[in-house]
Amino acid sequence: MLRIEQLTKRFGANAAVDNVSFTIDKTAMIGVIGASGAGKSTLLRMINRLADASEGTIAFQGRDVTRLTGSARRKWQSECAMIFQQFNLVPRMDVVSNVLHGTLNRRSTFSTLFNLYPTEDIHTAIEILDRLGIADHAPKRAEALSGGQQQRVAIARALMQDPQIILADEPIASLDPMNAQIVMDALRRIHEEDGRMVIANLHTLDTARRYCDRVIGMRMGRVVFDGTPDQLTTGVARDIYGAGAEFSEAATSTDINALAEARHAVTA
C-alpha cells in the first residue's frame, strides 16, 4: 500500500532523513521511535507533503506522491491526515467548528469565508465527537478543554477528512499518562474498526509495544530497526537511542503503574 524508497531530506549539508526505505503492504498501526532529532517528524511531514523530499520516492497504491502538485497534492493531504503534538486547533473557535475544518479541502471559498457547513457534515462531526467521548463539549471553545480532550478534537478533525492514512506526530508527548492512554486507545480503535492505516511517532517503548503491529526505529535519520513489538528488546532500544547500560525504560514509560514504581524507587 505504502512504499518508501531511498527517501532523503537535506537541510544544507545535514540529512534529517537519510536514505530511508520501507514498505507497508497492508493496513496496520505502525510506531516510529527514536530520540529527538532522529528524523521522525521530518519523515511524516514528507509523507504528508508538508515537506518536499530531496531524493527518493513515496508511493501509495501505485501513485507517486512525491510528484503531486497543486490540487492533486491538496487531495493527497486530505487522504493522508496529520495529527500534531500541539493539536493545531483554533483556540477561540468552538469544538464542532474545529472538527468541521477537516472538510476545508472539499469546500468552496465562499462557504469557507462564511463558515457555512452542510447539515450532514455537522451531524457527522457530532457523531465523530460522540465516538471519541467528547460530544458534550461540542459547543465549547477549544481552549476550554484539557490537553487530552483537545487532542481528541484534533483526531476528530482528521476523521472528518475520511482519510486512508492517519499520521500522528508525537500525539501524546504533551499529555499525562491517563490522557495518553485515552488518545492511544482511540487511535487503535480507529485502525481496527475503520481499517485505516495509522503511523505514529512515539517516544516511549511501552506505548509502541502495546499499540503497534510494527515498530520502526530511527537514529540520526536512518532506519536502524524494523520489526515486531516482541523484537523490540531493551538491547535493541539501546541501539536505537544510542544509550548505554544506564538506559531505563521506566524513565520514558507512559504506563501509570510503571511511573508510580519509578517515583517510589527515586524517593525510597
Score class of each variant (00 low, 15 high):
10 R>C: 13
15 A>P: 01
127 E>R: 14
27 T>Y: 03
215 V>F: 05
70 G>Q: 09
29 M>G: 00
96 V>F: 05
54 S>A: 07
177 P>L: 12
154 A>T: 10
16 A>H: 03
147 G>E: 07
67 R>Q: 15
183 V>S: 00
1 M>S: 14
203 H>Y: 03
263 R>Q: 14
268 A>P: 00
85 Q>S: 10
234 T>M: 11
147 G>M: 10
254 T>S: 05
142 A>L: 10
236 V>E: 03
94 D>H: 08
91 P>Q: 12
174 S>N: 14
102 G>M: 09
201 N>K: 06
176 D>N: 11
49 R>A: 01
159 L>M: 15
34 G>F: 03
28 A>Q: 14
15 A>Y: 06
100 L>Q: 02
232 L>I: 08
133 G>T: 09
256 I>S: 04
41 S>Y: 08
161 Q>L: 12
31 G>A: 15
26 K>Q: 14
47 I>S: 02
121 D>T: 02
114 F>A: 07
227 G>R: 02
146 S>R: 06
85 Q>Y: 09
35 A>E: 08
1 M>G: 04
176 D>T: 11
120 E>I: 10
81 A>K: 01
159 L>E: 06
52 D>N: 12
75 K>E: 11
156 A>L: 03
58 I>A: 04
234 T>A: 13
212 C>M: 10
74 R>K: 08
5 E>H: 14
245 A>P: 06
46 M>N: 08
119 T>F: 02
